[in-house]
Design a protein around this nucleic acid. Structure first.
Lengths: 206, 206
DNA sequence: TTCGTCGTGATACGACCGTACCATATTGAT
DNA sequence: ATCAATATGGTACGGTCGTATCACGACGAA
């Protein structure tokens, strides 16, 4: 047999090319030839490692979520060992905001895939649909933990607040993307709600 | 001259066909031939009244926002003459949730246009970009008015809460669209925040 | 060494899409 | 009645897109 190339490595390389060009020109505008050119390979190669465009798009979505998960993990690690629940939540939410080129691409493509999945049933059956649920559950758990340790207001409903925080973050992310809002104002809104939920010590509970 | 047909009426008819087919198969998948077939006219006619696809898409967006504005107005009128600020806000927010076929199409297409505008500068220059600002200002005004009349908690920041409510509504609308959340749960979250903002009389201020 | 398979290139094919072109019936103005 | 502008149909053109086909070099196993 010939060169015996690492398939998974090549697939990753091509998937990153897809993400690059899709982030630049939009997911709807990306063709196989664009991906090939961006990856520096021939069109045939893209066909070889992904037989069809649909499979390429699916793999691109998987790779995108994996990259995002890794990035969030890095942010959490950067917050130091065992940060408080509030710091953890803050890192989680802020990592989702499109503040640099990478997170901007994440947000744009994830939104594109979501909208696409509404009218594309094959895409709707893909695994990324349970990812938001995982985030919601994680955030809910963190809030409940904070309530038990007296850090968060016990009067709030953890799940409702988790849903709210994630929902606000998502929309404001899109607002940043279209240039309607600045990252700073989005962060300010999030801080406002975190201040409301968490006992800062400056505003003791009645 | 011949039949002297009403251009605006025909353009509206074609634009509605665009909205129909785009709501069904996705905005990215709609072609001029699809629109023509849906409207029951020839491809040539679509070209005649809109010279290019880009212009058709722009007009479709305008028509979409006009239809949505009219729908919200109808909801407000249905809430009775001079409803309280809370009822007004509630009608405003709930009208934005995709609960039936029409609002589902609204939400899907508006989101599609938004995402598209991120990578399409011609679309980004379109008027719909200031529409969210208008909603935000209106909501802020209503909240401030409610604060002055003692209906809403004076401790909240009206604009921040307006931004939050709109942001939550938008994301939860998309969640409903992709089948991740039910309209009821979204409404429950919104009610929770409205209860927090408004003095219900059951929880007197300290 | 031979052989079969893996990796890669070049190119062709059929479909579709937006747009342009040609034709023609209709009808108000002159 | 003639003319010119309007409204509409039919169809062709150039491009692009996803996919398929043909070809061939490389290399490990026998």
């Amino acid at each position: 047999m010939p060169k015996r190339v690492d398939h998974e490595e090549r697939r990753t390389q091509i998937a990153e090319a897809l993400i690059q060009v899709a982030g630049r020109r939009g997911l709807h505008a990306v063709g196989m030839r664009d991906v090939a050119a961006e990856a520096g390979v021939s069109l045939r190669l893209v066909q070889y490692y992904f037989q069809t465009k649909e499979k390429l798009l699916f793999y691109g979505l998987q790779h995108l979520t994996a990259r995002f998960t890794a990035r969030v993990g890095a942010r959490l690690a950067a917050a130091g060992p065992d940060p408080g629940p509030r710091a953890t939540i803050e890192a989680l939410l802020l990592a989702s905001l499109p503040t640099d080129e990478e997170s901007r691409t994440f947000h744009l493509l994830y939104s594109s895939y979501s909208i696409l999945s509404v009218t594309d049933e094959a895409l709707a059956a893909q695994p990324f649909i349970d990812n938001p649920d995982a985030a919601e559950n994680a955030l809910t758990g963190l809030l409940q933990q904070a309530q038990k340790t007296g850090l968060a207001d016990t009067g709030i409903d953890a799940r409702t607040e988790a849903i709210s925080l994630l929902a606000m973050t998502a929309t404001m992310g899109t607002s940043i993307l279209v240039g309607q809002r600045t990252p700073e104002s989005a962060i300010a809104v999030l801080h406002h709600h975190l201040d409301r939920i968490f006992n800062t010590g400056q505003t003791p509970p009645a």
